[in-house]
Amino acid sequence: MSSSSSPEAVATARPARPASESRLRLAAGSAWALLLAFPLAWLLAFLIIPVVVVLVVSFFEPTLSGFNRVFTLENYLLLAESDAFIRTLGNTILNALITTVVTFLLGFWVAYYLALVVPDLRRKFALFIIALAPFFTSFLIRAIAWIPMMGREGLLNTALLNLGITSQPLDFLLFSDFAVRVAMIQLYLLFMVSPIFFSLSAIDPAILEAARDSGAGWWAILREILLPLARPGIVIGAVFVFVLSMGEFATVRLIGGGKTSSVGLGIQNFVTYIQFPQAAAAASVLVLVTVAGVVVLFRYGRVAEGL
């Protein structure tokens, strides 16, 4: 019976085929849309909307208990006129740059050691975990642990005094810009180490042998091979550290002891005093400066080129 009805079947089947194909294409398209929708929704919910809200609030008029929805530029004018804010912003940028540079100078060698010197994977992993160990405790505990280490009566000062190196406790070891920088470097070192470690680990050992075979010494290998190949890791690490240090407030508060400040801390203070428009204005400036820094880093680092 099938043979007689087959012409019609063919006739009906013909248009059906493209239709099912387009259905498939549609299904594939909506799968793609779904796949894209999630990160987009994520971005929207956790990045774009908050930034827009902050931007909008920064133009509202502050009151004792919050703000009135009245447009004003006053918040920005106050910041622009405030020497303290300008100085704090400068200090924040300086601290972020110092932290980024020093974490690179130290972190590169940690990553180098882990990736290229430690021979087997298990030991690499073990050392990496040890390097992570401080992050198993809460930030507050780590910050509080600085006092018995670096305080006036802390380990370091006691050691220096007992060894006769100093005759008085060194105050700058705690509650100072110096202390904040040291703490931030310690805190963010791993954010620099990790991406560099992964960049260096990805280098085919044959590349290094080929360089050696061509007569490259340690320094030439570092300059010609390792640094260029680690560049994506270095730039990503630098972006991590720079962005984190630009937004830093907790370390500044606890280790700085009120002796030094950052824009982030100022924002936090404004928020706790319920002065949201000023907080939002300062935050907008901070975001702008941070994004500018990241753009420079990516430009200079040419990460988009891949290598």
């Binding site: 085919d204 044959a206 590349i207 290094l208 042998e209 080929a210 360089a211 050696r212 075979d213 061509s214 007569g215 490259a216 010609e224 091979i225």
Partner: peptide, 15 residues
């Protein structure tokens, strides 16, 4: 580098 010997590495090891 000071041997008159060169190597073509497995997977080439190109930079």
């Amino acid at each position: 580098a000071r041997r008159d010997i060169s190597t073509v590495f497995q997977h080439y090891g190109l930079f």
